[in-house]
Each structure stands twice: as C-alpha cells, then as structure tokens.
Nucleic acid binder design. Structure first.
Length: 597
DNA sequence: TTAGGGTTAG
C-alpha cells in the first residue's frame, strides 16, 4: 500500500527574524562609529552591563576610541586595556602607536614596539612609529626604524616613504630626506608634499618652490596640502608677485574651497605686506574656523593695526567661534605693537580665567615684550622672575631689546648675564649689548664684548634684505659693500645719502658695532646696510611711484629706519619693509609703526 | 588601522 501523500501544507510562515541576542546587544553594532570620549564611555558602560568587557572586539574598539584623539589620560586608559590582552595583534599595536604618535609622549610608541618583539609590523606600523619619532625629534630611534624598515622589505612601501622623509625633515636632517627622495623613481604627490613641507619647515622656501616646479613638470597633480606649503614659501620669501600667481593657480584648480588654503592665503598676503588682499580673502570666505580668524587677527597685529585686531576678535566672539592659544597670541601681539598695555593684561588674564586656555611660553614672551616696549622694564624683569616656569634665553633676550630701546645699560648688564648663563652662542645678544654700551659711550665695555665674542667663536649673522623685481628675488647682504656688481648701486646710494642729508637726515653712526672705526668708515658701513642696498636697487629698477617691498632677516636698524622715512618723502615712494618682527609702511616721511618698535 | 598641512613671542 502506497503511503498516502502527505497533505499539502501551506507554505510555512516565514521565520520571524530574531537576531541572536549576542548580536543584538553587542555594543559595536549599536555604536558603529566611535570617535569621542562620550561614545567611549557609552561603550564601556554597555560592555560592562552586558558582560562583554573582555570581548576582544570590544577592547579593540575601546582602544581605537582612546587613540583617535588621544590625551595623556586616554592613552593611560588605552595602555591599561592593552596590558589586559594576552596576545595583542598588530592592529591593536597600530592603534597604540598612532595614539602615542599623536600625544606629547610619542617616545612610548617606540618603547612599546621594542617590548613586543613577536609582532610582525604591517603597512600601518612604521608610518605611525616614524611619526612618533618625528614629533619628538628622536632621530636616533628614527634611524633605527629606518634600518628595520629596510630589514622588513618595506623601504619601497608607498606609505613608508613619506613617513621616512617626514621623520628626517622634522629632525632637521634635510640631506637624508633629500637622499631618500632622490632614489624614488616616480614619487607620488604625498612624497613630494613631505619633502616640500620639510623645505618650508627648514626655512628653505626657494628649494620648496623649485620642487613644486619639478612636480608640475613631471605632471604630478598637486593637492591642497601642496598648496599650503607653496603659499608658506611665498610668505617666507615675502614674494608678493609669486603669491598672487599662486592665488590664481589655487582658484583655477578649485583649492580655494578649502578653509585651510584660504587661511594660508591670508597669512601669505599679510606676510607679503598686502593687508588689503588678506582682508579681501578673509571677507570672501563663507566659513571661517578658529585658525582663519586667528590668521586675520595676526595679520592686523603684524601691520600695527592693534584696534582692528581687537575688533576682529569681537566679531569672532559674535560668530560663536571659540578662540585658542594662537588667537590670544595674536591679540597679545597686537596689544604689544600698539602700546595697549592694559588691554594686553586683560587678555592675558581672560584667556586663563575665562576661556580656560593655558598660557604658554610664547604668551609670556608677548607680555615681557609689551611691558618692555612700554618702558616698564623693571615690571618686565619682575614678571620673568615670577613665572611658574624656568625662563628661556628668548624671554631674557626680549627684555634685553627693551633695555636697548630705553638705553638702560644697568639692567641690560644684569639681563645679559642671565642670558649668558643659559646660552652664549647667540650673536644678536653681543651686538645689542655692544650697541647699548656704544651709545652710552662705554667704549671699554664694547671692546670687552667684541673680544668675548671673538674668544667664543660667535659669528655675527649678516643682515640680508631681499626685493622681488619682475618675479626674481634679489638678495643683498650687509657685507656686499665690496662686490663689483654693486658698483652702480653704491654710486646711487652715495648720491642718495648726500641728497637726504640736505633735507635733514643725519647718519646715526653710534649704531655701528666696530667701536674703533673712524667716523668716515662707520658711515660707509652704515651706508651699505642690506636694507639700504635693497631700497636703492628698488629705486633704480622699478618705475617711479611704484611701492618698494623689502624683506629683511633681522630687525631693521634705527639708521635705516630713519633713512627710509626720508626716502619715502623725497622720492614720493611708499616703502613696505618686513623685518624679522613686523611690517614698516613708510609713506610721506612717516612710518606706520609710529617709531614704536 | 596608514602618509602629507596652515596660523606661533624674541
């Protein structure tokens, strides 16, 4: 008998989709993206509640979270979790290395690596470790890593090349960086970016720009990061024409949409002496972050518009953009150069008490400079002595400059002793102190300082001024007085100085370092100062009425400052001179700094 | 999960 066919049953109801309880309650599925401390706490609370705190994937997620935007305490937490894992894999290690590379204790990344020898590094390991060495300038460890990179056959790795180059550039070993670069047959844009940024960092803007030209010649497409370095190079050189060309290039290629590029443009225009262009870039921005506002505040400050810097800060507050330590540096800098001592104190205290931003050495430097410029030399001295940190030679040097301005040799002597106790290799200190003594008629002290400088083998940094004419940057050094190719320039300067004397210019030979020179010799030394050579070159090689723009590597000397004022009125030329500190706009016999510098 | 960047007292 045949077995009756089973009754046709209706198709079964689809099974209700019930996710496994494990999966449903798994914190990772609830928080797919975790990159904040708040989320970290949520995951942790959830994992404890659901007894998943020892789940390796939860721990991985937690360590990732701690190390994305790490702080010292979040790294301590990450390390604590890492120690709990019996056999951490390379992914976990990479998280840890990244975290340490991004905090102020990058050295620990290297230590952790040496303490976990069984790990096999992958593509992501060396870049983080190298970055850690770069940020702590640990070149010895960096070199050891370079050897390991070669050992693991990762020396041709596209991720490792930029990190290696960056490590060497941040450790100021540009030769090694350039050597690695030269061996790469087809460098990609990131590799170019690493070396170009290195040249900018080591103040070699010309090399950075020629590498940018090479990149273009080899048809490698630049990125916005490349443009940041290129704009920085223009800013360093003070090359406005070049900067304007880069601005057009940036617009043509759509990089101007990037807020960082616009910020770099503001900085470039400000440092190339064109505040108006900086303002128009700033005004054209649809979105402005803290850095963009800060760049504009700094731009006003270096051009001596203290009040505009302050009103920009007020606008920034109205726009609800939070200031940072650099914003306040710009504000203090603005107060400095405008003589706004009370406002400066106000900002100094409000950044600390109201905005909870910690004051750093650079803010202290601003305060010392501000008090010093206002002639409150002993207040500045007291301020330095009462600082919570050990004063650096730079802080004392700032006060020394103020002592020089006010001719206070007594305090100056005390200050130079403090400086020499910390660092006696800075030629500028000897020069300033010698100038002070010379002006006070203390010839013996001048001779002593000169001898000291000679005995210690300290060499004076030659003054260098540059001027850009028809896209070529011409450099002049103070010692160029004897160069044959400058004969015509000397003749022009000789005639110029005689003409200026007729309208009241008196060369200030007290500023000449060599006290034993004859007055005629001193005048000749002064006459061929680099900034005067550059101005004369500008007068000869640019059409009448055109603004002359000069960039100087040191502070402008008092005599050149006076001569430039006379030149601006006699020749009806505007002269914009950027020295190591700030801008001087000379027009109709006056300077924008109001002689307050 | 990885590389590359700007604003910074004297």
């Amino acid at each position: 008998m045949a077995t009756p066919a089973p009754p046709i049953s209706p198709p079964p109801f689809p099974k209700p989709i019930t996710a496994s309880p494990r999966k449903d309650t798994h914190p990772l599925s609830l928080l797919p993206k975790c990159n904040s401390l708040r989320e970290l706490k949520q995951i942790q609370a959830y994992s404890i509640k659901t007894h998943l705190q020892n789940d390796i994937s939860v721990l991985t997620k937690l360590i990732n979270c701690c190390t994305v935007h790490p702080t010292t305490s979040s790294m301590e937490h990450a390390h604590h979790l890492f120690d709990q894992i019996p056999n951490p894999d390379i992914v976990l290690f990479n998280f840890m290395a990244r975290g340490y590379a991004r905090t102020t204790s990058p050295f620990r990344a290297f230590t952790l690596f040496t303490q976990t020898p069984n790990l096999v590094p992958d593509n992501y390991t060396f870049p983080s470790l190298l970055k850690a060495c770069a940020s702590s300038k640990a070149i010895q460890q960096g070199k050891q890593l370079h050897c390991l990179v070669v050992k693991h056959g990762q020396n041709c790795n596209i991720y490792v090349y930029p990190a290696l180059i960056n490590m060497y550039t941040e450790c100021n070993d540009m030769d090694s960086a350039a050597q690695i670069f030269s061996r790469i047959l087809e460098p990609c844009v990131v590799i170019y970016n690493a070396l170009i940024a290195g040249y900018v960092r080591s103040s070699q803007p010309n090399k950075a720009l020629s590498l940018f030209q090479e990149l273009q010649a080899r048809n490698v497409n630049p990125t916005y990061v490349t443009m940041l370095s290129v704009l920085s190079s223009c800013a360093l050189l003070g090359a406005l024409d070049m900067g304007k060309w880069v601005h057009k290039y940036v617009n043509r290629n759509g990089f101007d949409q990037h807020v960082k590029v616009s910020t770099a443009l503001i900085d470039m225009y400000a440092k190339c002496g064109s505040l108006n262009d900086a303002v128009s870039v700033f005004e054209s921005m649809t979105f402005r972050d803290t850095q963009a506002w800060s760049a504009m505040i700094v731009a006003y400050a270096i051009h001596g518009h203290g009040y505009r810097a302050i009103s920009t800060f007020e606008e920034m507050k109205m726009a609800h953009v939070e200031p940072d330590a650099i914003t306040f540096l710009g504000l203090l800098y603005a107060c400095n150069h405008t003589g706004l001592v009370d406002e400066g104190w106000g900002y100094f205290f409000s950044m600390r008490d109201k905005y909870k931003i910690s004051t750093g050495i650079k803010h202290y430097g601003c305060m010392v400079d501000m008090l010093g410029r206002a002639g409150r030399l002993y207040d500045a001295y007291k301020f330095i002595n009462e600082l919570p940190i050990k004063p650096t030679p730079i802080l004392w040097r700032t006060l020394l400059a103020a002592c020089n301005s006010y001719g206070n040799v007594k305090l100056g002597k005390l200050v130079i002793e403090k400086i020499f106790g910390l660092d006696d290799s800075h030629s500028g200190d000897y020069v300033i102190f010698s100038n002070m003594c010379a002006r006070a008629g203390r010839r013996k002290d001048v001779n002593y300082i000169r001898k000291l400088m000679k005995d210690k083998g300290v060499e004076k940094v030659p003054g260098c001024s540059s001027i850009e004419v028809n896209n070529v940057v011409h450099e002049f050094f103070s010692g160029d007085g004897t160069r044959v190719e400058h004969r015509e320039l000397h003749k022009t300067l000789d005639e110029l100085v005689e003409e200026l004397k007729l309208v009241g210019y008196v060369p200030d030979t007290s500023l000449v370092f060599h006290a034993d020179m004859e007055d005629r010799e001193k005048e000749a030394t002064l006459r061929y100062h680099s900034e005067k050579l550059a101005i004369a070159f500008g007068l000869l090689n640019t059409p009448s009425g055109m603004t002359i723009r000069i960039v100087k590597n040191l502070r402008i000397c008092g005599d050149c400052h006076s001569a430039a004022k006379f030149i601006s009125s006699v020749f009806k030329r505007q002269i914009i001179l950027r020295d190591v500190q700030r801008f001087h706009h000379f027009k109709d016999g006056k300077c924008s700094c109001g002689d307050y510098w």
